[in-house]
Design a protein around this nucleic acid. Structure first.
Lengths: 337, 337
DNA sequence: GAAATCAATGCAATCGATTGAAATTAAATT
DNA sequence: AATTTAATTTCAATCGATTGCATTGATTTC
């Protein structure tokens, strides 16, 4: 195994001490110009690179951010990673990615991995299964700043970055109503997720505004392609089916469109559908999907910026005031409505 | 800043030396059962976690894998990350993700970042722009094993994992011919990428097999949604347009379908289209896309396994024999043909 | 010419954990 | 009781870089 060039190698070759070499490399005023240039020259020649691990140990910092995320494969999350990485990169941080695969158990292990890797801070969007948050509290107890994004929890001393879920949902449903829908179904995310609740309540309030009765029977727990397709099939076969659908994400909305078409319904003539996310797929499906743009890239950027701010100005647990940042959402109208 | 519990804290509290504590924690036979249990008990009580950074320094290893990838947002790459993460996780490795954004310059910086972070090994799929590979050679010079996947280079001492691009392309084009296509166009990736070359040659040989003239005029450089849509529009407006398309990836194929539909062509009656990737979008577009499954998840798994094998049994540069693993591809026939 | 000043460099401790070798203690043997 | 053997534990060096505090040698000042 070839050894890396160390400061010691340079010191020995030049007959100096490691301290002098160290100082020379960082332009310490004590060092004479002659030795300074000599050191720098040799360092360049040998291809010296400071050993980050040694610095990590000394500074008790790794310039690394941990990212705990349900599933990379979702467009929304990969867009977020993109935003995170951009900011991290600009600030000379690296990103370690951990997937929970929507599993609480796996997520707990992720938090442990993040601890052993001694990351400087953590960005989290937790799993659908997660109802107990003590593993995140443990991170905070270890003085590791945590920023939640998209799927957030309010009663933990941690910052939050979310899309304006309520408003986005309101816009979506309002749009359906204005387009003439009388019976609007909502395919919702689990209600332990704040996004699930917020979007439901946006749906509810938009109905309210137009004096449409809120019917529990029209709200379904369906936030994946498979569950949504099945649910849509069931619902559309029943008497008096909905003429409008507001789905909690694009894949769910696309599944509804697929199911409707399979049953011979025309979109948007018979049924109108709105999604939430504005993924690549929304622009691909037929007809193209009206959806709420969640600006994942921006969300990732903001979350990372927030974390970096905490890393720069650490606060004690006592004086910590969580900040909540809301990213505007926007309705993108396309052929499905 | 709250200090982490160290081995020293335990040693002092129990009136022992750090060496004894260290040995007790790892069940060294020299340590008496009494002290062993005492140490372990206190360690548990204080919530001691070994400082990974200190271990990193001592072992000159970080149990971290660097991943350099063009763009996370592509389904194919996120599927690969998924596979990589699964294997890494099982083997107690963490993954650091670096995106090149298809930029050579950024990729060079990524390799530097990977070096300063002292990862144990690197997985690479390089950018479209990359024609000079000395930055990867530098990694290898630093004794960091490199495994290339999908976009690989043959003349570097590094393992490779690729899909069976040639065969997949052959299958795709053969399928188009058997479905009656006489004039088949190919939307290709840049020819500096081996995948570009292999898929083109699969296309070429399938034509050859059926005694169809290979026409340079029918091969286009178009591997993104935007460029493909524009190219398809142009081609389909010309006299004697193709009746079949083989695209180098799904987004390109979907763009062709979109363009064709905009021009009033029916799919698959007037035009047949085959993609390459088998992304989520392929099952969503209308008609559903016939495509070659690239098994990104498997590919990621294999690449990571290969790297871990190199980490377990390091070879010297002299005796290094690159291994190339080929993942089988499979034609998935759907409505577009 | 002795004392004070200053520039340049080296020493040694530190970060946290590990480990070969030495030292201490206890037990067993003669 | 003296000596060997075995069982525990500690010492000190190591990984690579940094940094407060000497130390050295040269120059200036009185």
């Amino acid at each position: 195994m070839k050894r890396q060039i160390t400061i010691k190698d340079i010191a020995i070759k030049l007959g100096l001490s490691t301290s002098t070499v160290s100082r020379a490399l960082k332009d310490h005023p004590d060092i004479s110009p002659k030795t300074r240039t000599a050191v720098k020259e040799l360092a360049g020649l040998l291809g010296y690179r400071p050993n980050r691990i040694a610095l990590n140990l000394r500074n008790n910092s790794t310039r690394t951010i941990g990212l705990i995320i349900p599933e990379i494969e979702h467009y929304f999350f990969s867009a977020i990673i993109n935003g995170i990485e951009e900011i991290a990169y600009k600030n000379d941080y690296s990103v370690m990615v951990f997937q929970s695969d929507e599993s609480y158990k796996r997520e707990v292990i992720n938090t442990q991995a993040v601890l052993t890797n001694r990351v400087d801070g953590v960005l989290v969007s937790f799993s659908k299964e997660t109802n107990d948050f003590s593993h995140f509290q443990k991170l905070i107890d270890n003085e590791i700043p945590v920023v939640f994004f998209d799927r957030v929890i309010e009663d933990l001393p941690a910052d939050q970055v979310v899309a304006d879920d309520y408003h986005g949902a309101f816009l979506a449903v309002n749009h359906l109503i204005e387009k003439g829908c009388k019976r609007i179904a909502h395919f919702a995310a689990p209600q332990n997720l704040l996004i699930g609740k917020s979007r439901l309540s946006g749906y509810h309030d938009a109905l309210l505004k137009h004096n449409i009765h809120f019917d529990h029977e029209l709200v379904f727990l369906a936030d994946t392609y498979e569950t949504s397709k099945k649910a849509a099939h069931d619902i559309l076969r029943k008497p008096n089916p909905p003429d409008g659908f507001f789905a909690v994400n694009d894949m769910s909305a696309i599944a509804i469109i697929k199911a409707a078409k399979e049953l011979g319904k025309r979109i948007p003539e018979d049924i109108k559908v709105v999604g939430f996310e504005n993924s690549k797929s929304a622009a691909i499906c037929e007809p193209e999907l009206t959806t709420v743009d969640q600006f994942g890239f921006e969300l990732g950027r903001e979350a990372c910026l927030m974390l970096l701010k905490r890393l720069k100005d650490p606060t004690t647990t006592e004086t910590f005031k969580p900040i909540k940042k809301v990213i505007k959402t926007k309705l993108v109208v396309r052929g499905s409505t």
